[in-house]
Design a protein around this nucleic acid. Structure first.
Length: 133
DNA sequence: CACCTGACTCTAT
DNA sequence: AATAGAGCCAGGT
């Protein structure tokens, strides 16, 4: 699998319904430094659950109608948005299986949890976040 | 080949 | 909380 995009797609397919991850984390696991590239990969694909990829603040990054569509798809999977249109990554953030990642040649994200407190969720207890490792 | 654009993210105001 | 700037890199023009 030399095509970098294909590596991203393979990873995105691992995200279960009702869960989300971020461009940055996806890139980190694939060894792609620029999250923008991941965004572009999503933009180019039509056969992966692209709706489960959002930005590090838990918001949908797509502007326009497609963004609204993405939210609908996620809500249909049970993902909830707050008043600010944000998803609580602590609750809905996908925690990839470390063994699977390693077995498939992906890097282990140094801090999955960093996205967690990334941007405040009122009431979120940052001391009891699930750790990836 | 040069330049622009962006489904990004951090840090610093 | 909102805004700005830098870093980032593949694609399109």
């Amino acid at each position: 699998m030399s095509d970098p995009y294909e590596r991203i797609y393979q990873l995105v397919r691992q995200i279960p319904p009702g869960k989300v991850t971020t461009y940055g984390q996806l890139g980190a696991m694939c060894g792609i430094a620029d999250p923008r590239v991941v965004g572009e990969a999503m933009n180019a694909s039509h056969d992966v659950p692209w709706q489960r990829v959002i930005n590090s603040r838990g918001e949908i990054s797509i502007k326009g109608a497609s963004g609204a569509h993405q939210r609908e798809l996620l809500e249909a999977e049970g993902v909830e948005f707050d008043e600010g249109g944000r998803v609580d990554l602590v609750i809905y953030g996908w925690v990839p299986d470390a063994q699977w990642l390693q077995a498939n040649g992906y890097a282990i994200p140094p801090a999955l949890v960093k996205e967690k407190k990334a941007r405040s969720y009122k009431g979120a207890d940052t001391d009891s976040q699930p750790s990836l490792f």
